[in-house]
């Protein structure tokens, strides 16, 4: 059994991501699109067992609403920020894109972290490149 990280995200419109987008833009953060996923770590014999385990967990996954995929990287990628509540095992992964559809630069991610996405009193955040 080895640990694997998976991303569970909505396949229907994500109102929370849209609300974050509107709030960030109001705060002056230059972002054009926001995506969100919940990152979880599971112990499984192989990739397919990990995916199947999540798909069977009705507390995590509703096939009508969610899709799940493996996350191969161990740290956030460009344009991405991972936020973990200090008392939680899962993380929220936010992806921010600019007007051209490219990942926003690190400085913008840090701005978004400080302005909205992370409350440092109860959460920690890791910012991508």
């Amino acid at each position: 059994m080895t640990e694997r990280r998976l991303a569970v995200r909505l396949k229907v419109p994500d109102n929370t991501a849209y609300t974050a987008l509107v709030a960030l833009r109001r705060l002056g953060v230059p972002v054009a699109r926001v995506e969100r996923a919940t990152l979880i770590v599971v112990a499984a014999a192989d990739d397919s067992a990990a995916l199947e385990g999540v798909r069977r967990d009705e507390a995590l996954f509703n096939a009508n609403l969610h899709e799940v995929e493996l996350v191969r990287c161990s740290a956030p990628e460009a344009g991405e920020i991972w936020v973990r509540a200090r008392d939680a095992s899962s993380m929220q992964a936010w992806r921010l894109f600019d007007e051209d559809g490219a990942p926003v630069p690190r400085a913008t991610l840090e701005w978004a972290r400080d302005a909205l996405l992370c409350n440092p009193a109860i959460e920690t955040a890791v910012v991508g490149r």
Binding site: N15, T16, T19, A20, A23, R26, L27, A115, L116, L117, N119, I122, E123
Partner: peptide, 13 residues
């Protein structure tokens, strides 16, 4: 705002 992101986070901003 349905406590989106965190409780009170959107309303506060």
């Amino acid at each position: 705002y349905e406590d989106r992101i965190r409780a009170g986070a959107i309303a506060a901003r």
